[in-house]
């Protein structure tokens, strides 16, 4: 009988799913505003529809993690703790090897990792910072005529900078998280499936964490 570890709760997966949809719609609709030539080509009605849908999905984008914070504050704290966890030698080694691993996975042995890989902690931290910036500046842009043109201008610039960051990080996040990268194959199930990871994959990706979980048995499921 194969063993699995329940890595992500249903709540976490639902919030992640909602956030993913909101984020992708926001990127697509934002692109139409970001590149005026696209806006001019699709016409005023489409641009206006896109602007309004951008606002609706922005509300979802901001509200989803806040709902998570309210419904499961402990889980939220757990995420933050992982994000700011102290880096050990394996974490540093992982980052040093990651470039080689990305282009030569067959010949690269990666060190064991804790619950969140060091590289993912960096990417998550940057993504969260960019998301907070894009949300805050988005609110300012929504206020529109209520703020001075100087404030509006600054918010617009920072919104665009954050947009670029989010888009680039999302590219990499989807490549790895959805398992397009061969060593990560099947990892989409963690967030878009039942949230379980097989014993073998857990040991491969997050060795330190998997050992603890398998020994404690608390989140281990046999199927």
């Amino acid at each position: 009988m194969a063993r699995y570890i329940q890595r992500h709760s249903l709540l976490k997966r639902v919030i992640h799913g909602i956030h993913t949809v909101a984020c992708l719609v926001l990127i697509a609709s934002g692109l139409i505003i970001f590149v005026p030539a696209i806006g001019a080509a699709v016409g005023q009605d489409v641009v206006q529809f896109v602007r309004m849908s951008h606002r609706a999905f922005a509300v979802v984008f901001i509200a989803a993690p806040l709902v998570g914070l309210i419904v499961a504050p402990k889980g939220f704290v757990h995420i933050l703790k992982n994000l700011f966890a102290r880096w050990d030698s394996d974490d540093k080694k992982f980052m040093l090897l990651f470039g080689k691993y990305l282009f030569s996975p067959k010949n690269t042995h990666m060190p064991k990792q804790h619950e969140v890989k060091s590289g993912q902690r960096l990417a998550d931290g940057l993504l969260i910072a960019a998301s907070v910036l894009i949300a805050a500046t988005g609110v300012v842009l929504w206020m529109g005529a209520s703020v001075t043109p100087q404030v509006f201008r600054l918010a617009l610039m920072l919104h665009d900078v954050a947009f670029v960051l989010v888009v680039l990080i999302m590219f990499a996040h989807i490549y790895l998280g959805a398992g397009v990268f061969q060593p990560y194959r099947g990892s989409w199930r963690l967030m878009f499936g039942n949230g379980r990871v097989s014993e073998s994959d857990a040991l491969y990706h997050w060795g330190h964490w998997a050992e603890k979980e398998l020994k404690s048995g608390e989140n281990v499921v046999e199927a």
Binding site: V180, S200, Y204
Partner: peptide, 26 residues
Amino acid sequence: AAAAVFGGLGLSFLTGIGYSRDEITL
């Protein structure tokens, strides 16, 4: 930047074709 990231990830994908690993247990 988007083209560079996209191209880099594409290259990464190509170099990873044929990758496999053995199943392991604790």
